[in-house]
Amino acid sequence: MSTVVEATGLAKVYPNGTAALAPVDLSIARGEFVTLLGPSGCGKTTLLNLIAGLVVPSAGSLRWWGSALPPIEQRDRKLEFVFQSPTLMPWARVSNNVRLPLDLAGVPRAEGQRAAEHALAQVGLGGFEHHLPRELSGGMQMRASIARALVNEPDLLLMDEPFGALDEFTRQRLDDDLLALWQARGLTVVFVTHSIQEAVFLSTRVVVMAARPGRILASRVIDAPYPRDDAFRVSTDFAQHAHALSRCVASANAPAAAAR
């Protein structure tokens, strides 16, 4: 397995003195589904922004496919980012929103439109091409946002608590569909969440983070086989992983309680 991202001693101190992220080491291999799990303020979003190159690190190094992270203008690998909110352009129809990455890259409009319609069908939004974002529900807007990330066939997909604002039922359905897409397309995903259940359900590996200062506590491989379904959500295996992770998160807040 080839390494996609390798962070060594990566740290971020914001100009106002906030230590968002203490030096961390993290390596992500091709085809992995890695989840960054932790409470608010643990630096998981900062780490994701560092990987994307949206934030400049204060210390440490970050390697992309084995070489130093090139500036955004000189990248030959495709990275896509899904934000906490759908971040759609309210004035543009859904298919125009989804086509945006291709439009910006100069792909001919007709070809882009075909790819956008394909991506929309993949996330279950076929037939909504001509709707405006405000005409969609929150979950559907998030699906459009995911379609926009998939339209460009990304080499690396970064997702920052994408389903945090959705209700439990919608979130589970989107989790299911995301896993199916990950498997079908062989994606490499880094996913940020504060939900232990979501982390266990989705990931090949969960990286547990803690706050003040933001740091990595532990890393746990979730070895359950894919495809994972609702039965997995209520299995003993699932409960054991969730329990171990929640103990790990709790140990950061009360060090004395950490048994192992």
């Binding site: 949206l54 955004i72 203008e73 896509e80 980012f81 934000f83 971040t87 890259a105």
Partner: peptide, 21 residues
């Protein structure tokens, strides 16, 4: 929207594209 601005940056949008689109 700062998120959209980041998105345009990640896709290497030119100054003109950011302005117009």
């Amino acid at each position: 929207d700062p998120g959209l601005l980041d998105l345009f940056r990640l896709h290497r949008a030119s100054r003109w594209q950011v302005l117009w689109r």
